[in-house]
Design a protein around this nucleic acid. Structure first.
Lengths: 179, 179
DNA sequence: TTCGTAATATATCGGAACGATATAGGAAAG
DNA sequence: CTTTCCTATATCGTTCCGATATATTACGAA
């Protein structure tokens, strides 16, 4: 899914500025499954404007740099529907954390343990945040599905690490003793 | 984790050609957590050679374009250990599939169902492949940990989609009827 | 009060990475 | 016998992303 389509999709829900699109990637239901920085969003919006898939309305905001609100056009909506109907790219997961665990023998055990505990804390926080989500009751079906999937996956990771971390640390201790 | 470090890590296990490094990303224990194409690997190897972190031995292979076997140097090993000790980047997950489900209302129900069944088939195949893994018994601890985590996560996804797909398709049918 | 920090807001640059593609011989399959 | 697949290296253009620059408001701390 390229960034142009992603921006179009967000704009199909509501008009937004580049900044608000960025926020949608950070906080909203997209946060766990897509990401984009300003360096991707602004060029994408420019190209979408060139293609007449969005229009821009500049709103002078008393002093502050004028807020540029982007709106999807009918042509943009058609392009979006077309792009969404195409076969989807396979999911991609990149994990520095897991890559490092593969080379746990090159890490000293205390660093490894710190790394694991940090990850556990992050996962616990993510799970807690998603469980106590105030707006979770009145989400629309698609958002509920994605959010539920996220929670389910985070729980699986959390449980797995808690159950098996001891094996990993044990192996690291033995590797250190062998040297 | 940049590609240079990733290549170094693979070379720390065994000498390899660029092609073999690519295969390690496709088949090996790395396949689910890191990826790189030739367009990333070859420039990375060139830069590693410039930094004296690897050496190259060209093996003329009776006619075929000479195989270039890369070996990690002591300096490379130190750079690797240094890089592995640094705090890890947060995991990143990108899913076209889940992004599309967020916009299920823009898809027609039969396309949506096809998409979901395709994903279920992929997940079932991945789980089956990991369960019947011939070499799983004699994996080293780090590889066992990562592989087990992968299996656990794939199962969680599979179960979740099977349990909740009906809600998603139902919502899509209603959206179609409303139009 | 003044200072610093965070939030709002847009935008660009350079480098890293990726997909597609070119090249080429050997092996296996049809 | 010919097409396709596997081994193997390499580059090119596009896309992407992190870092950075700029500017104003607001709020709390020193």
């Amino acid at each position: 899914m390229d960034i142009k389509t992603t921006c179009l999709a967000i704009l199909s829900r509501a008009d937004a500025s580049g900044y608000e699109i960025k926020k949608a990637f950070e906080d909203g239901p997209f946060s766990h499954i897509q990401d984009a920085g300003f360096g991707s969003i602004y060029p994408a919006l420019s190209r979408l404007r060139d293609d007449a898939h969005v229009t821009v309305t500049e709103m002078p905001q008393n002093g502050r740099p004028g807020k540029k609100v982007y709106s999807i056009t009918p042509a943009g909506r058609m392009a979006l529907i077309d792009a969404l109907a195409q076969p989807s790219m396979p999911d991609r997961y990149r994990s520095d954390f897991l890559f490092r665990t593969l080379f746990a023998n090159l890490l000293n055990p205390s660093d490894l343990e710190t790394m694991i505990e940090t990850r556990l804390a992050e996962l616990r926080e993510a799970v807690a945040r998603m469980e106590n989500c105030a707006t979770c009751a009145d989400l629309e079906p698609g958002e509920k599905f994605v959010s539920g999937m996220g929670l389910s996956v985070y729980r699986a990771m959390l449980d797995y690490i808690e159950e098996h971390k001891i094996e990993l640390i044990g192996a690291s201790l033995m590797a250190g003793a062998a040297q």
